[in-house]
Design a protein around this nucleic acid. Structure first.
Lengths: 144, 144
DNA sequence: TTCCTTGCAAACTATTTGCAAAGTG
DNA sequence: CACTTTGCAAATAGTTTGCAAGGAA
């Protein structure tokens, strides 16, 4: 992230497609670039609108289809927060959980090794093996 | 819960409706009885099918509408587990989280005060006040 | 040139709603 | 009786899919 070639992880995402034997189309390139910017957790429609600005011919179906392949390849994560539509996130860093700001819809990422460990313990005690989990906090900014 | 009148919490749920000035109809009585049996976390369709056995005239809309009022009154909880449709649970006991068996769809309830506390701490550190939260573990039975 | 991908429209799943008829307090 | 609730069908939101045309390797 010092010399700005391909701005961040767009090339990374393209590599995922290429290695899967999939084609790098104009619309995919556009969508990947938006995802790679990261910083937020857009839903399909937001992604579609941003992509349309670059390439007005893009369709919502293509956004959905692209999200599906990338998710299958493990390159992005799909979240379904309380109520709303699915929201997507470029899966580069390590695992984390989410705090959703109820007033703005903003998402704050966090992680707690202690909670992760406790979850493992609980599952083990109940006779289960965790395959995945989801921890979401819904709250509002504290005004002091 | 010693003398079994109205089998468990069905009367309790009826009281919620009555106190809200709502009417106790035949179909609501049927649905409430099913919810009060508790033990599992049925979705609207399952509820509808079970209720239909008792009263074939019941409609799916009524199931949804009844879930909505009960949820508004805080008498039941609605969960949207990964992927599937909303599933409902009679909210009598204390708060708990869920472990979903990926093979059977069964739900195991658990709670951890330590995790609850850690969540509070995290939210506070991030400058938020928790309004609600959701912790779900998805896993499969451990075979030894 | 082959096979993948696209846009569009139609299909789908889960849930909600308008309305006239039926039921409850 | 007055007002609520119901069943039905139609509407909605979010997402997926069939298909013929267009595009990447």
């Amino acid at each position: 992230m010092t010399d700005g070639r391909e701005q961040g992880g767009a090339g990374e995402l393209e590599a995922v497609l290429r290695e899967a034997g999939l084609r790098i189309t104009r619309q995919r390139r556009t969508i990947l670039a938006i995802l790679a910017e990261g910083g937020d957790h857009p839903d399909a429609l937001a992604l579609f609108r941003r992509a349309s600005r670059q390439d007005p011919s893009i369709s919502l179906s293509t956004v959905y289809r692209t999200m599906k392949v990338l998710e299958e390849k493990g390159a992005i994560q799909r979240h379904t927060f309380e109520g709303g539509p699915a929201r997507f996130e470029h899966a580069d860093g390590q695992h984390h959980d989410h705090l959703i700001d109820l007033d703005t819809g903003d998402v704050v990422e966090f992680r707690s090794d202690r909670i992760e460990k406790l979850q493992e313990e609980i599952a083990r005690e109940l006779g289960y093996e965790i395959v995945s989990h989801r921890l979401e906090l819904y709250g509002r900014r504290r005004r002091d």
